Amino acid sequence: MVSQRQHYCLLLLAVHFLASSSTATSGKVPAIIVFGDSTVDAGNNNFIPTIARGNFPPYGRDFEGGVATGRFSNGHLVTDFLSEAFGLKPSVPAYLDTSFTIDQFASGVTFASGGTGLDDLTAEIPSVISLSQQLEYFKEYKEKLKEAKGESLANEIIAEALYIFSIGTNDFIVNYFVLPVRPAQYTAQEYVTYLVGLADAAIRDLYDLGARKISFSSLAPFGCIPSARTLNHDEPGECNEEYNQLARRFNAELLDALRKLNGDLAGALVVYTETYSVVDSIVANPSEYGFENVEQGCCGTGLIETSVLCGIDQAFTCQDANRYVFFDSVHPSEETYKIVANETLKTALQVFL
């Protein structure tokens, strides 16, 4: 017979166990689902007719097996490191890669496309996947997931997954500062507001499709990427402060929009993931992070090469990409992505762990 005291102790243990289980489950992320540009494209562009690709050497040389997957870096991306940190697979696959199954996509998938932006016009320039099309692919993914896992489990994955947006830089460096269309319609400040409105709309659309845990990354100081330094006519070799000022303005308006979304979207948690200050700190103090070169990319001369141009100038490519903040003239190296991932895990994304 169990005494009254023993029964009470067992009851306390049961309550403690249930409370612990509830806490652990509440922070569980069963999948990482990604939208955005080349900073989070794991190879979707390999499967569409565009020259904006990274599926050839020297890209991917530090990835498993030295394979150029289509990631615009020498190795893994921020989202790959985040996936592993959440106890999921060590890399997030591209949705258009038919070598992966829906069962593999169930724990993570990226719809991102290198060269795209919040503005659909940006995607038209290099003929890549617009953000609106990425959301259409997500709808398709949801249906496939229901067929494979059953509606109940699929809905649970969709509701508990962490959704990551990393997008916006190309709207400036591929679109606004290159083509005359948007400057004729908007001042630079007005265009920032227009883009933040598009970000707000995309999050609301995703919420309507079942998303509840959402991270939107700030813009990095894109005025300090090597190609921006090279093309800075006022101060050649220096960061373009006009670009960085716009990035900061976008980030400030984005933060305000995300705060409002948290009030508007019942049951959702939308977090602002600060990357500007992390990259800015690396650029200002590269040696403190183990870097030797911040002004050039590892690929080619490091001044202007990206995508197909990286494949042309392999003879000039650096030996150790970990010593470079950037792998090509636009995209960070794997080591930089790792630092950014670690910092965001300790700050904005901590609430989801």
Rank of each mutant, 00 (worst) to 15 (best):
K149W: 12
P180K: 09
G197K: 02
Y95A: 05
T193N: 00
G150S: 13
L198S: 01
I167C: 03
Y95W: 15
L162F: 13
R182G: 04
L162H: 07
L121Y: 11
Y141E: 02
G150D: 11
L131R: 04
D120Q: 14
T98G: 10
D171S: 01
T187G: 14
Q133E: 11
S107T: 15
E84W: 03
L145S: 08
K149N: 11
P126H: 03
I129G: 03
N155Y: 05
K149V: 10
E84L: 07
P93E: 07
A184I: 13
F177H: 11
P93T: 15
Q189E: 13
Q185P: 12
V128G: 03
T122M: 06
P183Y: 08
P90E: 06
E84M: 05
T193K: 04
F138L: 10
I158G: 07
E190D: 13
F105D: 00
S107H: 09
F100Q: 03
K89G: 07
V181E: 14
T122G: 09
L131M: 12
Q134D: 08
N175V: 11
V92R: 01
Y191T: 06
A148C: 09
L162D: 04
T101V: 09
N170A: 08
V178L: 06
Y176C: 09
V196N: 00
L153V: 15
G168L: 00
S83H: 05
L195M: 05
V92P: 00
V178H: 02
L195A: 03
A161M: 08
V181T: 15
V92T: 14
V181N: 13
V128K: 01
T116L: 06
I129Y: 08
K149P: 05
Q133A: 08
S91C: 03
D120K: 15
G87T: 09
T187Y: 07
L145A: 12
L96T: 13
E124F: 06
Y191F: 13
I102G: 03
K146Y: 07
V174N: 04
S130F: 13
K149Q: 13
D200K: 03
L135K: 02
T101Y: 12
N155G: 14
P180W: 09
G168P: 00
Q133H: 05
V174K: 12
A112C: 02
P90G: 06
L131K: 01
F172S: 07
F138Q: 02
I125W: 07
S166E: 01
I164T: 08
G114T: 05
D103V: 10
T101P: 06
A85Q: 07
S99Q: 15
A199K: 00
T98Q: 15
S127P: 08
A154R: 06
D200I: 00
V178S: 05
N155H: 14
P183V: 15
K142I: 10
E136H: 05
G87Q: 12
Y95Q: 12
E124Q: 14
S166F: 01
A106Y: 04
L135C: 02
P90A: 10
R182P: 10
F100L: 13
N175L: 15
E160F: 11
S132I: 14
Y194H: 11
E190P: 09
K144E: 12
Q185G: 10
L82V: 12
V174P: 03
P90Y: 02
A85S: 07
T116I: 08
F86V: 05
F105W: 14
K144G: 08
N175F: 11
F100N: 11
G117M: 07
A148P: 05
V109K: 01
A94W: 04
V196D: 00
